[in-house]
Write a protein that binds this DNA or RNA. Sequence first.
DNA 1: ATATAAACTTACATTCGTTAGTTTATATGT
DNA 2: ACATATAAACTAACGAATGTAAGTTTATAT
Lengths: 211, 211
Amino acid sequence: MTKRQRNARGEGGQLRQDILGAAIALIDRAGSSEAVSLRAVAKEVGIAAPSVYAHFPDRDALLLAVLQQLFDELIALRSEAEERAAAAGGGAWQQLRAGAFATVHFGLQRPGHYKMLYEGRVVSGLSDPMAAAFGRPIQLRVAGLIREILEGMPERENDDAERLALLIWAGTHGVISLQINKPTLRWPKATDLVEDLMRAVIRPANSGVSP
Amino acid sequence: MTKRQRNARGEGGQLRQDILGAAIALIDRAGSSEAVSLRAVAKEVGIAAPSVYAHFPDRDALLLAVLQQLFDELIALRSEAEERAAAAGGGAWQQLRAGAFATVHFGLQRPGHYKMLYEGRVVSGLSDPMAAAFGRPIQLRVAGLIREILEGMPERENDDAERLALLIWAGTHGVISLQINKPTLRWPKATDLVEDLMRAVIRPANSGVSP
DNA sequence: ATATAAACTTACATTCGTTAGTTTATATGT
DNA sequence: ACATATAAACTAACGAATGTAAGTTTATAT
């Protein structure tokens, strides 16, 4: 907004972070990555539009960096939530639930960011495999936790954990996505819906709460 | 594309349908409603861009009409599928499943259209309540079928059908949306996933197939 | 003092929604 | 059969926004 003071000799890289932050702020405010025009980003940071090119080769590169950072943030939020659940004595089930709830909160509080991560054909030049790879760690973590849960359930020991992880992912995403995109419907608490779906899919025996 | 022959006196309205169809075709090809520029639509139909204004007051009105038509198509597809299931002797459960499968096919075969219906903040000036109202009939129908199913299950007779409908909607949408937006992942058959989720949520006793 | 990193100004070529005014074909009245 | 009113479409153009290229200025570290 205001004129930005010039960075020192070696610290031109500081601006890179500010540009990234501005792009992320714009997406959050507008609810969509289309709001990221180089001119809008530049104005937000307080620089001239072409100065962005000193730090990103083109607009797609900027959006790709945003995507990466947002995935990192979501992964960090999930990990923290899981660790809190574990620290409180929670087992695999409680950790899985905590991670899912963290995603729900992320999605509902920052719908523009969530849509970019999971509803995005955002970066035109970006091969989808790359975008999919960003989210892969979450998928693996969920499948691992589910495997752990299944091991405590003799009658389902050889269920396919990967498949159950997919079902839970789909259910969680469905709740978040619908609530974001149809906000005027009367929605029950999203976390309750997600927990219902997770219980229905997994049926954890020792879930700590009700059977 | 080629020069279009002029419509007769009273039949200017024919062009309206062609414009609608062109917009729908563009969305299908590009996978997003951003592809609907008045110039692109006009070229597709074979007219000049401003001629669109004879039939739609502005771009948003065109997109709104597209939205309406696509919802109508989806509703029709669902109804046909349900009727086929009923004609084959299927009960409420089989009809519910057939409707869900029809939506899955619609979504995977026409991802751009599906995204417009369920992931769209498409029409900037369109109040969301209106867009939500377009999809309302499906929601009501699903809840009705679920109520019917629950009535055949004494032990769950007073479960909340509206809530179960929401869970199934979310699950179905989640499967479709994720498969659309992360197409490079290895996806099991989408209908199988949806059926798993529906069974997990409803646990129909007499589902006709396995318990 | 000077080399250079950091950022600027200017501008080009597209694309877009939309407005204004104009042309052309068709149906109708005589 | 012919003139005419009008529906149906056209051409031209404006103003705004966009990604990006080219060349220039300015502050800082050596």
